[in-house]
Amino acid sequence: KKVLATKVLGTVKWFNVRNGYGFINRNDTKEDVFVHQTAIKKNNPRKYLRSVGDGETVEFDVVEGEKGAEAANVTGPDGVPVEGSR
């Protein structure tokens, strides 16, 4: 997949743990970017399912997906594990 941007910060708009996807709002362009649970690189080690929490700040790369921009290599800021869904 073509990389459109790297090390982008954003805020998780919503994430559905059961369906394994959601959207992140980019801090720079204010665009919403699709995020799938497989894109989460560093999950909260205390959680079994990969997820990001609503309102959580995350860092990610933006790649060209089949339906437009999507997140890849999702971590917390500066590469720490994500907090995950509460």
Rank of each mutant, 00 (worst) to 15 (best):
residue 39 A to T: 05
residue 29 T to V: 01
residue 52 V to E: 06
residue 77 P to G: 09
residue 7 K to M: 05
residue 6 T to I: 07
residue 7 K to C: 05
residue 82 V to Y: 10
residue 75 T to K: 09
residue 19 N to G: 10
residue 50 R to C: 11
residue 51 S to C: 12
residue 66 E to W: 08
residue 16 N to M: 04
residue 43 N to I: 11
residue 77 P to Q: 09
residue 1 K to E: 05
residue 25 N to M: 11
residue 62 V to N: 02
residue 62 V to W: 00
residue 16 N to I: 05
residue 19 N to V: 10
residue 41 K to R: 10
residue 57 T to H: 07
residue 72 A to Q: 12
residue 70 E to Q: 11
residue 68 G to W: 04
residue 6 T to D: 04
residue 25 N to T: 15
residue 56 E to M: 14
residue 11 T to W: 08
residue 79 G to Y: 10
residue 64 E to L: 14
residue 18 R to P: 05
residue 37 Q to G: 09
residue 56 E to T: 11
residue 58 V to G: 01
residue 85 S to H: 15
residue 62 V to Y: 00
residue 77 P to K: 13
residue 78 D to G: 15
residue 22 G to D: 01
residue 48 Y to V: 13
residue 13 K to G: 01
residue 67 K to G: 08
residue 53 G to I: 13
residue 40 I to N: 04
residue 47 K to A: 13
residue 32 D to G: 01
residue 40 I to R: 01
residue 51 S to L: 12
residue 64 E to Y: 09
residue 85 S to Y: 10
residue 11 T to E: 07
residue 2 K to C: 00
residue 43 N to W: 14
residue 13 K to P: 01
residue 74 V to R: 01
residue 25 N to G: 03
residue 86 R to Y: 12
residue 70 E to N: 05
residue 5 A to Y: 04
residue 32 D to M: 02
residue 49 L to E: 13
residue 42 K to H: 15
residue 62 V to K: 04
residue 42 K to N: 14
residue 23 F to D: 05
residue 13 K to C: 05
residue 71 A to E: 01
residue 65 G to N: 05
residue 23 F to I: 09
residue 19 N to R: 15
residue 63 V to H: 02
residue 11 T to V: 11
residue 23 F to R: 03
residue 75 T to V: 08
residue 56 E to I: 09
residue 12 V to T: 03
residue 37 Q to D: 06
residue 55 G to C: 06
residue 18 R to A: 09
residue 48 Y to H: 14
residue 59 E to M: 15
residue 60 F to P: 00
residue 75 T to H: 13
residue 51 S to Y: 13
residue 74 V to D: 04
residue 74 V to S: 02
residue 44 N to D: 11
residue 35 V to A: 05
residue 64 E to W: 11
residue 6 T to P: 06
residue 69 A to F: 09
residue 12 V to Q: 00
residue 29 T to M: 01
residue 44 N to F: 13
residue 33 V to R: 01
residue 59 E to A: 09
residue 65 G to K: 03
residue 86 R to Q: 12
residue 49 L to F: 12
residue 32 D to C: 02
residue 27 N to S: 09
residue 52 V to W: 12
residue 86 R to P: 13
residue 12 V to A: 02
residue 49 L to M: 12
residue 80 V to C: 13
residue 85 S to G: 14
residue 24 I to T: 02
residue 62 V to P: 02
residue 48 Y to E: 13
residue 70 E to H: 06
residue 80 V to S: 13
residue 10 G to D: 04
residue 48 Y to Q: 13
residue 3 V to G: 03
residue 24 I to N: 01
residue 44 N to I: 10
residue 40 I to D: 00
residue 81 P to T: 11
residue 82 V to K: 10
residue 34 F to H: 06
residue 68 G to H: 06
residue 22 G to H: 05
residue 7 K to F: 01
residue 38 T to H: 08
residue 53 G to S: 15
residue 48 Y to K: 15
residue 3 V to W: 05
residue 38 T to F: 05
residue 78 D to K: 13
residue 15 F to P: 03
residue 71 A to H: 00
residue 43 N to V: 13
residue 79 G to L: 11
residue 82 V to D: 12
residue 84 G to E: 13
residue 24 I to F: 05
residue 76 G to N: 10
residue 70 E to A: 07
residue 62 V to H: 04
residue 6 T to K: 14
residue 18 R to Q: 10
residue 9 L to T: 15
residue 80 V to M: 14
residue 77 P to W: 15
residue 12 V to M: 06
residue 78 D to E: 13
residue 81 P to N: 13
residue 77 P to M: 14
residue 53 G to Q: 14
residue 78 D to Q: 11
residue 73 N to I: 02
residue 13 K to H: 02
residue 65 G to W: 00
residue 73 N to E: 05
residue 71 A to G: 02
residue 69 A to I: 15
residue 15 F to W: 07
residue 69 A to E: 09
residue 65 G to L: 00
residue 5 A to S: 08
residue 82 V to A: 12
residue 68 G to P: 05
residue 27 N to Q: 08
residue 33 V to C: 02
residue 57 T to F: 09
residue 72 A to R: 10
residue 54 D to C: 15
residue 55 G to A: 07
residue 19 N to C: 12
residue 6 T to S: 10
residue 14 W to D: 07
residue 51 S to F: 12
residue 25 N to Q: 15
residue 81 P to K: 12
residue 4 L to W: 06
residue 47 K to F: 10
residue 8 V to N: 02
residue 60 F to Y: 04
residue 61 D to C: 00
residue 68 G to C: 05
residue 43 N to K: 14
residue 42 K to R: 14
residue 33 V to D: 04
residue 51 S to T: 13
residue 17 V to D: 10
residue 46 R to I: 11
residue 59 E to F: 08
residue 6 T to V: 10
residue 56 E to F: 08
residue 40 I to M: 07
residue 28 D to E: 02
residue 12 V to C: 04
residue 48 Y to D: 15
residue 86 R to E: 14
residue 28 D to I: 00
residue 78 D to I: 13
residue 71 A to C: 08
residue 75 T to R: 13
residue 47 K to C: 14
residue 81 P to D: 13
